[in-house]
Design a protein around this nucleic acid. Structure first.
Lengths: 339, 339
DNA sequence: CCATGTTTTGTAATCGTTGCCAGAACTATT
DNA sequence: AATAGTTCTGGCAACGATTACAAAACATGG
């Protein structure tokens, strides 16, 4: 392993000169600079970033915590985070929790041990140390930004969309299309996000003067399979819905399969609205009407917030609410029979 | 920032004792050990991993390079890599190249500067320094494992499936179903992987005594959209295929859309085979027959190879070829008309 | 050619740990 | 109580860079 000292000796200069050649070339005379650069090239020297880091307060590394990497919605956000982070000079480390607290804590620990500067959380889990603080305990501080989910009582930079309004928008759209028996396949109700979308669903139904039937609500877990199962349960009930709001596109795609298997037509028999606007939804049969979240804006905002937190710059807003958008496609194209 | 020295002073012991309490508790007497642990808890001390790393030859960090995180096939492999790596005590850093050499080199640089120990490449791009070495140049060494793609002339641990045989298998299946005008939507032909699948396609056609028509080959880029476009081009030709082998499921899903839009039935008019066995393929309309790659085995093997490389343990095999598998679903369910 | 001011350069301290080594503190044995 | 043999502990030198500070080299003007 060739070190800065080897270069210095070989080039006949001091280590300081080598260091300067690399970090502030203008400060060293051209003759020596050339000599040093040449030696560096000859000896294949690359400065040890670990050693360099030791003197710096920061690391330029941000960990992004995702419940599941394979979920295209999350990987989409990760992609945009990676993008912006790269431009701001940050490295991104991705951690997958799969709902396990232990894994999350492992990554949180990397911040405590200064392997990374901060945590961007996309999921609904909080590190144990953060939760301890929520409950009034004294605990070490972790720079944190929450994207996607909100946590009541936790004062920490947060970028979200208004899931209540978005859920309501989806249902209003179904109502406007003439649906009268509107069911929903919700996400796991442990997530605030799922709760919010469900609340939007309920509020919109009530506002439209439609009944909110207990039997019209099925809980899924955001996976295709759970959407498939939930839809089957809905189809087995006495009252079959003519419209379903799915809390994400994956579950909607699963639901579509169940509907097709029953020989029902979409949207003629059942209209569907999803959430997230996955690429796969646009190519489903029929293409899925959905609520689009501003994925890249979410990622961008989250990184910029983290950047501000790490530099102790004040944030204009601690909580940013971005705008969602209804994307109309064929799964709700034809109006149902108007009463 | 509280350091080991602060703890030592506060607990009335030497830094060495604190260090030992953490790394080899047995070696310090219970009375002092307790005192130290208590002080650590009181002062919220977490050892600085950067400083610790400085003394170690390795970092326990592996970078996984992916062309696109949002591609579910890659994120599936990343997931399995993350899994196994975690168990072996490695951290995983994910880098996305989006086909840009500059981004890949940025991550390769992290290995040279010892921020990470090695690189697992899932894509078809090689770091500049590695390519330089391929061309006979003298260049620094980077621990490398190639997953998914092979590179001729590069002697480096490699885990793949036999894409030629797999491509042929897909086509044989179409032939067995009675298809006679079999087209293919290939991946980018710059990738060895795409070349191999295409070669399998050609060989299987020839073996079946069917013509390999230039016009039956369309190049895509593995995206849904490109599959959609490629299928449209195929449908506009004089001879419309009765079977299509798509080099991945995403393109197959795009192709399905194009076929539906023409009002053609699957598999009655056109049978389809995809590749990768994405969850979304199983829920497509109709569910997609596909070639399943052993995703988790690929990930597991890649990490274990990297582990061996980093510990300079000899590998049983430098090149591991894993087995693929045909998954039959409805997109090829009914035989076409037999001649 | 000297005094002075401005670049450049080198020396050495520093970052927070680990781990070697020598010495201190125990325990056991006579 | 003295000795030998163990276990524990503390001091200090690494690890490989950066950087403050001082010294050296150079430039400028009189």
């Amino acid at each position: 392993m060739v070190t800065i000292r080897d270069i210095a000796k070989s080039a006949g200069v001091s280590v300081a000169t080598v260091s300067r050649t690399l970090s502030d070339p203008e400060a060293v005379r051209p003759i020596k600079r050339e000599k040093v650069l040449q030696t560096i090239a000859e000896m294949n020297y690359a400065p040890n970033a670990i050693a360099r880091q030791l003197r710096r307060p920061r690391n330029e590394t941000i960990i992004v915590i995702v419940p599941a990497i394979a979920n295209p919605f999350f990987s989409g956000i990760v992609q945009s985070i990676e993008n912006v982070a790269h431009d701001l000079g940050y490295r991104i480390l991705i951690g997958e929790t799969r709902g396990e607290q232990e894994r999350l804590d492992y990554y949180a620990d990397m911040v405590l041990t200064r392997m990374a500067d901060g945590l961007i959380l996309l999921g609904s889990l909080l590190p144990t140390v953060v939760r301890a603080k929520l409950e009034g305990g004294r605990a070490p501080h972790i720079p944190l930004v929450l994207a996607c989910e909100r946590f009541d009582g936790l004062d920490c930079p947060n970028v979200v969309i208004d899931n209540v309004v978005a859920g309501a928008l989806a249902v209003q759209h179904l109502v406007a299309r003439g649906c009268r028996r509107i069911a929903t396949i919700s996400g796991p109700l442990a997530n605030t996000l799922s709760q919010d979308r469900l609340r939007g669903y309920c509020e919109a139904l009530r506002a439209a003067g439609l009944a909110v039937a207990e039997t019209g609500i099925e809980e899924g877990d955001f996976s295709i399979d759970s959407g498939y199962g939930a839809m089957q349960r809905l189809l087995n009930k006495a009252i079959v819905p003519d419209g379903v709001f799915c809390a994400n596109d994956e579950m909607a795609i699963g639901a579509q399969q169940a509907i097709r298997e029953r020989g029902l037509a979409m949207p003629a028999d059942i209209a569907l609205v999803g959430f997230d606007d996955l690429r796969f939804g646009a190519f489903a049969a029929p293409p899925l009407t959905t609520i689009r979240q501003p994925t890249s804006q979410i990622g961008e905002t989250a990184v910029k917030m983290m950047d501000a937190v790490l530099h102790k710059r004040p944030l204009e807003q601690r909580k940013v609410v971005l705008l969602h958008e209804l994307v109309e496609r064929e799964s709700t194209a034809r109006a149902c029979v108007q009463i």
